[in-house]
Structures are given as structure tokens and as C-alpha cells.
Amino acid sequence: MSYNLWFGNFNGDVEPSNNLKRSFKSAKNNSPIPFNISELGMKVLGGDYYNLLRKTAIEVAEERVEKELKSDDKYVIALVKALEELEEAINTLKEKKEDLEVVRETEVIGEFIEGISSLEKLKSKVEKEIEAVMERIAPNLVEIASPKIGAKLIERFGSLENLAKAPASKIQIIGAERSLYKALARLRKGKEAKMPKHGIIFMHGFVRNLPKSKRGKMARFLAAKISIASKIDFFRGELEEGLYESLKNRYEELRRT
């Protein structure tokens, strides 16, 4: 058996690494190592073992963190766009398949079904990836808004930073711009107008599950909490206990009254 250790390779003997950063990055093994690597390492590196380990760990982590901080929300945005395209493609294909079914029974239909199911698999993969990345970069947003809505908001605002700096009122209606401008135009002409109450955040269960008359209140509250969540995510990045609690309480309150 050969093992990849941060200070070199082991298969009976240690072949010391000549580049600790590189061997640290590739110190992966499929199964647990049956001996204690620090004991072996001290034989190779002597009393300097922990010093070198710590130094290498810090250097590697520093590089990776910087890289990730730069590219994470771009990655989410690209994933959301890909997801939207996939959803649309799946819908279109399903429609076309039904059109075909009406006209003629043909083997082509079977191929359509296959194609659709493989796209659906891809779609669920993309969704899982969005969840995983969102969990890392915006845990509070995930908790308050769900990974999907959170990711869509980041996509719409262009970055987590922009979302964190946006006013809650904008978060509340983003995704409903068309009806907003329509309403504003009517108001300008002195006519009565219905302002949109929610855009993307309408997908949230707490908004959707309430009767129409209460959705506006819930949407406003939710948008305010999303605003706070995204600020914590952007500036601190750690989960804040109790944020979800107040959202749920408000929902229960609106549901009862």
C-alpha cells in the first residue's frame, strides 16, 4: 500500500516531498491510514514537524481562500443561469413531445423521453451544486430564503455584495419589475394602480401559503429578514441563530389572525 502524506509518500519507506505545499494539497487517501502519521513524520522531519505542518497549512489555506472568495458568487450566478436554461429546455421538450404524441405514434417519442430524463438528471445535479455552494457562501440566506431563492436573488443583484447593500424594498419586488413600472406609469397619469407585493420571493413557502390579503405583509417582513441575512453573510459569513425563528413566528402570527 502506498499513502499520500503531507510530507511525502509512504510505501514501506518515506519518500520525502521536495515541495511541501504540493504534497500537502495532494495528501488524499481513500481509506484511513493504519498508523499515526505524526510519529512517522517526526522521524523524517524531527522536532520541526508541527512547525512545518502549521506553516504549510496556513500558506495553502490562504491561497485557496482568496481564490474562492473571488469566484464564489460568480459561480452561483453561472449555475443559476444554467438552471433556468435547463428548466426552459425541459419544458419546451415536454411540450414538443406532447405535440408529437397527438399526431403520430413514433419511436422518436421514446428518444424524446430519454433526452428529457437525462436533462432532468442534469438539472437535479445543478440544483445540488447550487445548494452546496450557497450553504458555504450564504448560510443565513439559505436558512431564511432557501438555497434556490437565495441563489436567484444573488443572480438578479449581480453579487452577494450588491444584495447585501440593497434596500429591503427592492428585495421585496425584484422579479416583478414589469408590474412595478406599469403601476408607476399609471400613478403618474393619476390613475389607480396596484403595486406588486412580491417578485422572486413569492416562491417562498411562507408567502405563497398565506391568503392573498396577507402575502404583502409577509413579503415585506421576509424581504427585511433577507436583507439582514445577506448582510451577515457578506460581512461575517457565519450562521446567526434566531433569525429564522422570528420569521417563522411572524408567519404563524399572520396565519392565525
Binding site: W6, F24, A27, K28, N29, I37, E39, V65
Partner: peptide, 25 residues
């Protein structure tokens, strides 16, 4: 970790222990 001497920081995913299996004793 930079201030202290006894913390080894690993930027990794705890659900994939094999990825840091050659680092942690």
C-alpha cells in the same frame, strides 16, 4: 492560526475526510 502555535487550519469539507487524510494525525 497565525497568532497561535497550536492550530493547524484546514480549508476543507468535513464530509470528505479522505481529502485531508494525509494531513491529520
Amino acid at each position: 492560526a497565525k497568532n497561535r502555535q497550536n492550530i493547524i487550519p484546514i480549508f476543507g469539507d468535513a464530509s470528505k475526510p479522505w481529502e485531508y487524510s494525509g494531513i491529520v494525525e
